[in-house]
Structure formats: C-alpha cells, structure tokens
Design a protein around this nucleic acid. Sequence first.
DNA 1: GTCTATATTAGGATAGAC
DNA 2: GTCTATCCTAATATAGAC
Lengths: 186, 186
Amino acid sequence: MSAVPSRRRTGRDQLLAVALRLFARDGIQATSLQDIADEAGVTKAGLYYHYKTKDEIVLDVLRPLLDALPAVTRRAEAHRTRTARVDEVLGGLIEIALYEHSGFAVLMQDPYLTRLLGQQESMRQWWDGTSTLILGPDPDPQTRIGLAMFINGLAGAGRDPAMTPLDDRSRRQALLECGRRLLRCD
Amino acid sequence: MSAVPSRRRTGRDQLLAVALRLFARDGIQATSLQDIADEAGVTKAGLYYHYKTKDEIVLDVLRPLLDALPAVTRRAEAHRTRTARVDEVLGGLIEIALYEHSGFAVLMQDPYLTRLLGQQESMRQWWDGTSTLILGPDPDPQTRIGLAMFINGLAGAGRDPAMTPLDDRSRRQALLECGRRLLRCD
DNA sequence: GTCTATATTAGGATAGAC
DNA sequence: GTCTATCCTAATATAGAC
C-alpha cells in the first residue's frame, strides 16, 4: 500500500472536484474544458496532460458513483428477507443521494451522460437487477411505479430547499419514509 | 376566429414538434440548429425565418407547458378544502406529465432550461405558490419533501418502462396514488 | 506538469438571391 | 418561405517549448 501523504487536493483530484461542481450546476454539455481549466486555475492544455478527452473526465468524475450503485445492490443481495433488502437498497441510495448529491443528480438526469452510458447499457442493467431484487419477479404495477418515482425523485428531493432546515439524520429519515410509503412498507 | 384549415403540420408547428423530440432525446444543449433543420427537412437558415435565436425556439417549444402549469394552480385555488386542492394539483400535474411528457421532462430536468428560466425566476415563484397552496403556510418537513419527491419523480416515472402495460386511466391512477401516499392523503 | 500557440471542426447567426 | 453562401465565435484537441 503506497503512502498517501497529506491528501493534498492536487492534480486529478482537484480537477475532478471542479468539474463535478460545474457539471452539476450547468450540465455537462454546457461545461467547456475552458470553464474547468479556468476554475481550476490551469490552462486547457493542462487538462490534456491528465485526460485525453472530455468523456474521460466525465467518466472519471462519476466513477465513484458508478461503483457505489452496484455495491449497494451487492450488499442488499446478502439479506434473506425482502424487507431487509428493501431497507438496504433505499438506505444505500439515500446515502449516495445525500453525500454525493451533485454526482447523483448528474448521473440520474444529465442528458449528456444518459447518452454516454446508454451506449454501454450498464446503468439499465444495474437498475433492472436491483428492481427485481426488491420487487420480486412479477411486481404489481403500482409498486413498480412507486419505485420509479423514488429513484427519479431522489436526485431532485436531495437538493430541494425543504432539506435545508434538517440535519443529516432527519434527511435520511425523511427520504426513507418517502421510499417506504411509495413501496408500501410502512 | 380565423379558420384553421386541415391543421397541417407546417411551418412553426412542425419545427416545434421536431425540436421537442430532439430536446427530450438528447438535451437542449446537445441539439444543434443543424440537427433540427435536418430532421425537419429544411436548412439552418430556414429556421431563422421563423425564429431569431435558439432560445426563442426553446421557449416556444415549452410555451404550452409554461402556460399549463399556472393554469393548474389557478384551478386548484378555486377549491375550498385542502383535499380538493391537493387532488386538483396532483391530477393536473399528472395530466401534464402523461400527455406532454417529453416537454415536462425537459422542463423539469434540462440544465439548459434551468439556466434560461432561472434568470426570470418564474418557475420558482410558481412552485413556491403552488407548494404553499397545498401544504399550507407552515408545512412539516416530511410532507414538503414528499411533495418535492413527487414533482421531481413525476417526469422520470412518466416515461418509465413500468408504465407500458397500463392504459391511460391506470397510469393516472397509479401516479395519483403515489402522490397521495407521499402527501399522506390516503 | 503546465505553458503558448495553433489546427480543426461545429455551432449560432446574418446577407441576399429566388 | 426557403435557399446558398458566409461570418464569427467557441469548443475539442494537438504540437512542442519550458
């Protein structure tokens, strides 16, 4: 294991943080390499030392998210009861939506990314598997739609003004309650 | 009242239909005037006879939506009981999400539009008023977040595969049920 | 690892013919 | 009302110096 001295925000790490902020604020397509370079205090050419293309930056920015989602599902698969699996998935998704909410919103909603990932179908497959895991093989439409509303609403609800007065624990609790109501697990 | 002979898809109407489809599929920013012109079978310059700028096209595409949302709120204001107002708002939003779901998704989620409208704050004001109308002046956080999840989830749920097997009436019913659960009106 | 300078392409927008 | 031709700008990307 190599040493990680002082965890300085340098090189790629800093670029990724800047890029994510701009992607979340303006959308990926509207964020130019110039914008990222300016904000990071380097030149456009400087970016190309680290990344060959813009898409490479985009995918690297969202790498933590793209890894975290399947991890949630794997943890849920370990449970034996449906209730436990549902709680694991809802809790895991909420955790991600709250703590990486910029990335989660980009991942769920940005049209640029939808196209980029759509080519590899990985997201859709993950979601199919996860849905089946918590809904069962032949779910009733109402519950399926409730789940769709939850996952789609999570990104938006996570950054809603209604969240501001709440502390972390209350936020998790409120979102979990939404999920349970939609899935009729209350 | 002028005659509307044969309702031909011509001129602006056809351009708007094409533009909306591309905006919904690829995002506004990723849709160039060239793309719209190609798909509509005209040249880029042809677009400029009808519209001076791209933003003008964008706003005209979404005009029906931007008019429909305040109309829902006005109808809801006419009711005296909270329950009736909630049903009017939920029903109205669902109607829009189902029958203009491309436009609704663009309106709710496209970063380009968020910026364009953000400058005039009109959407935020409409939503503030509508929230207050159905939640009351001092709502509890859980219900506020439930409403946020509903409005944000509606766009995504409206085009989810889970909708496919259902007819129109069942779709409306399922989405209404989601809203009622989130707002605890069941 | 970051810079200056530049190639190349695409996008928004305009002028003026038909 | 639509076309051809063109302008200008900005965006992705590369070459090569420091």
